[in-house]
Design a protein around this nucleic acid. Structure first.
Lengths: 327, 327
DNA sequence: GAAACACTTGAATGCGCTTTCATCACGTCG
DNA sequence: CGACGTGATGAAAGCGCATTCAAGTGTTTC
């Protein structure tokens, strides 16, 4: 593998000049720059990142920590981070904590020592630990806010409001809310908006695991409240709720309307297609990475960014007490 | 940030000994080793990976290249790679090629210069280019075979056979096959098994994009063949087929049975739940990474591994001409 | 009791690159 | 015409670590 020194020799310049020609082109005379670039291409020169990192103190890596890669939502964020990072010629080191809070702290510490910055997506890490991490290096939070730290979140309170308004417009007056993990920032954030719409009473049916099975279990509770619509912490839960309702002979949306959160792919694959609040996951990845880069260059404290969400109305919601099937 | 030198000073030993105490513990006397380890912990020492990489020639990174992180199947593979890599104290550099074949070659080259080995998941890269990559460094293929190169694939031909046998057992004699991208290895591999079950005639209805919409489009073609069951290249297509069938008033599984491939989450969330061939994606990630590590240590040529698949029978398949609804 | 050996240790070297710093060649200005 | 900035260049000094090599210590063997 060709080294920078080889390139320099081939171009008849010093290694210093070769280095400059490649990484700070305008500090080198045009003629030499061309000679160097040509030589680099001819030799198939690929800079050694480790050496660059060691010498410059910049690894060229951005770290990404998330709870579960197999979860489509997190994967979407990863995609955004990845795309944006490549755009600025960085690569991304990914760490799946496997929902293991214990290991998480260590993983972050490990990663943080070897990246230029970290995108942290950790719904459950204690706030105090997050602050520790932030002190150890540039870091931006995704889908979570901590006072004073840069973050990109979703305005899901607005999403809740939109969903509630939509349901009210359809004549619903009583809605059940199937919550997610109590310890999660976003659940707390959503709950705060539950009372935001006049004329709609919301009954909280408690916290549930944000998976299909969680929704299955919650469906009966929701039914018991007598609500005519149910708003769920996420689509997986909503899908579970719908499964269970169907199994109990309750028709969606005729008997009861269901609204989810996230707009995962499956929301459009089921029947009835799920009405849900779409959140710009991939964009959040972009945004977070951009913010990280600014953090490192400007040194400015990144201010929290809250991305807009959008209610996507499909088939799982219909007017209350309607007798006509949707299809 | 504490360096190894700091640790050495704190422990009263030379940097060389400190280095050994940490990375080759049994070459250092017990007493000193403890002193070093204690000092390292006290100072919060974190080795500088770049320096280690530069000095040892081993980056401690494994590269992972895949077409689309947002695709749950690839994300599952990534999860496996990640888990296995962490187990051996490696980290994974991830690159999403965004289905862009053009960029792919360059991305791989870039990555390959800076990792110890590469897990490559590229259904469409020309075989010749793959060989080039393999020549440039340790590499294992996932979900694709190239003569002479290490790979981990799925025995999806066996999956096709299982599915066909299942359908025959239910009385189906005529099955439509909705194919995936022609250029993909796995589609070719599956097609070869289409004639493997006596008594079942398979009509190929052509290649389709491996997405929901692709299935929607294919459903009408499948129906036209008069087949009583349809086997799909993947679950996304199968889900699309089911959507379209429902829209046309055809009931699954009473009028027609549907089988998918992959067992993505959504397969269990829809109604009827999809009968599908489950493939061990995450395990493939494990396996590939393990193979990569062996490649590097033993230097042995890894032989191709073909992982078993399993037909998961759910609700989308039922006896032909049955008049009783499944539920 | 000396020679041979195994085992630990530290000094020194270099991985490939970036980044001062000093040098040199030019053009500019007083 | 000399003093002085300006921009381009190369020599050299590390970045933090692994690793080679020689030296030192203690143990075994004949």
């Amino acid at each position: 593998m060709a080294t920078l020194r080889d390139v320099a020799v081939a171009a008849g310049v010093s290694p210093a000049t070769a280095s400059r020609a490649l990484s700070a082109p305008d500090t080198v005379s045009t003629a030499r720059r061309h000679r160097v670039i040509e030589a680099a291409e001819r030799l198939g020169y690929q800079p050694n990142r480790s050496a660059q990192a060691l010498a410059s103190g910049q690894s060229g890596h951005v770290g990404l920590v998330l709870p579960d890669l197999a979860n489509p939502s997190f994967a979407a964020i990863a995609k955004g981070v990845q795309a944006q990072a490549r755009g600025s010629r960085n690569s991304v080191l990914i760490a799946d904590t496997d929902e293991d809070a214990r290991a998480e702290r260590e993983i972050v510490r490990d990663l943080q020592a070897n990246v230029d910055g970290l995108v942290l997506c950790s719904p459950r890490m204690p706030e105090e630990q997050i602050r520790e991490c932030a002190a150890a290096g540039p870091l931006v939070l995704v889908n979570r806010e901590v006072e004073g730290l840069p973050s990109v979140t979703f305005d899901s309170a607005a999403g809740v409001t939109q969903a509630l308004q939509h349901l009210r417009a359809l004549g619903h007056r009583h809605v059940a809310y199937v919550g997610g993990p109590t310890s999660s920032w976003s659940d707390a954030h959503r709950r705060r908006a539950l009372g935001s719409v006049d004329g709609v009473e919301v009954t909280d049916v408690g916290s549930h695991r944000p998976v299909h099975q969680g929704g299955v279990a919650a469906a009966d509770l929701a039914l018991e409240t007598g609500a005519t619509a149910v708003l769920c912490y996420n689509d997986l839960i909503a899908l579970g709720v719908m499964s269970r309702l169907r199994a109990r002979g309750v028709t969606v949306p005729d008997d009861i309307s269901v609204v989810g959160f996230d707009d995962i792919g499956a929301a459009s694959y089921v029947s009835p297609m799920l009405t849900t609040v779409a959140i710009p996951l991939t964009r959040a990845g972009h945004e977070a990475t951009t913010m990280l880069e600014q953090l490192r260059s400007d040194g400015t404290d990144g201010h929290p960014v809250r991305l807009p969400v959008e209610l996507v109305v499909r088939e799982s919601t219909s007017p209350h007490a309607s007798t006509a099937p949707l299809t």
